[in-house]
Design a protein around this nucleic acid. Structure first.
Lengths: 225, 225
DNA sequence: TGAGATGTTGAGAACTCGCTGAGATGTTGA
DNA sequence: TCAACATCTCAGCGAGTTCTCAACATCTCA
């Protein structure tokens, strides 16, 4: 979660509350720094106050969407006018809260937004340049050539592709693919990345999976939808 | 879509937004005219504000249902009380939105309602290339040759065909065909897919049912993105 | 330069998965 | 009551998959 609000008291309260709900929280206190943080696209959701110093919440949202960042955004405002709502909605906000709002309502909205997000994501086709991953059909192809993968290989590739552009630690992969009970050693990750590389190389997709020594792996792509 | 709301700003914003989502939209600004429009029954869904001049949303909904019009209705209100929600749903509303609501949420609810609607029209004949499934007559044919199926076999085939083009997990199939109480093991699914294949192969429909190892089954359909 | 850390890979044992034939059990209708 | 059918479990086979081990390659830094 990214929380953008100019009042230190609100920031602290939200941070503490959301932590207690098991979320990881980062905060920003003005428009520009909030925008910068949100641009990384590495948040599951953003809670954005409208009245902000430097750059209003509207503008932040606008630029975010213009830059193609699709992270869900909940707008927070003290104002209640219809006009504001319509504006916010047209800009692509995913929810709207009017101050003062109850914490319970906030959490409910957040969970709704996150659920919708994962619902959409689960079956959404992932595209990374020539690489296309279709979770609904469990199919992978490179430049329209299909690539046959075993279930584990597929899961590893999806886990990497979902975090495309950033490095995924081996332990993180282990957790994402093998589950929490750690049924496999860390070497299994290396082996499966090896399998994936071999199969991808065979269709000309060399160098898609990069090794980051001492940490983990990353799958290419600077773009994003 | 029929949008009934007395505020011109909201009407315009919704109209624009929904058009952008590919829907056809008509609007009405008060209760009586909204009711008249809805009575025609020619809408896929109605978005109905509760606070309306002339005739409240509740009354509109009431009369609509009394007249036997089953069009799905989403109620919109500024009020947030539990009582109101219960009232609205009792009157036969299909969803409830509290202002201020986000446009994304509205669209999600709308799609859910429409999906439910089409699910009810289950009797529609399913066509997958040469394969024709008629749920109303419980008949299946391949290239005009009829195929005799037992009820279970039929149910499995329908469950697969309804999600044509995407992979259906065995557990998912089990739930869809056998119900939630898990009256059968996962192997039953394999057995029935086996039966289906044998019968389909016999009329030349080989390879219609594909196995996706480690996950489930998929029935043809190459189109779609 | 070379020792230790880190990553890659081939081999192979153990296991899981999906398909199938056999058969127990239940249901229906003559 | 019996035959015909439907449903579902079971056990076994063969193929594919998963994962570990250990040898080897590569990298990093003193």
């Amino acid at each position: 979660m990214l929380v953008v609000d100019d009042e230190p008291g609100v920031r602290r309260a939200l941070e503490r509350g959301l932590r207690a709900e098991g979320m990881q929280v980062l905060t920003a206190s003005d428009g520009p720094s909030g925008l910068r943080a949100a641009m990384t696209g590495s948040f599951d959701a953003v809670l954005l106050d409208i009245m902000l110093p430097g750059l209003s919440g509207y503008r932040v949202l606008e630029r975010l969407r213009a830059a193609g960042v699709g992270t869900p955004v909940l707008l927070v405002s003290a104002k209640d006018g219809e006009v504001d709502q319509a504006d916010g909605l047209d800009l692509g906000a995913d929810g709207y809260l009017v101050k003062p709002f109850s914490f319970v309502v906030l959490v409910a909205q957040l969970r709704a937004v996150l659920r919708r997000q994962t619902d959409l994501r689960r079956d959404a086709v992932l595209r990374l340049g020539e690489l296309v991953i279709d979770p609904a059909r469990r199919q992978v192809s490179w430049a329209d050539q299909p690539v046959q993968l075993s279930p584990r290989e597929f899961a590893v590739l999806v886990a990497l592709a979902q975090r495309a552009g950033s490095v995924v630690g081996k332990d993180e992969l282990l957790r994402a693919v093998w589950g929490d009970e750690q049924a496999a050693s860390r070497n299994a990750v290396e082996v499966y990345v090896g399998y994936l590389r071999r199969k991808l190389d065979a269709v000309g997709a060399g160098g898609v999976l990069q090794t980051v020594r001492g940490y983990g792996y990353a799958v290419g792509a600077q773009d994003r939808t």
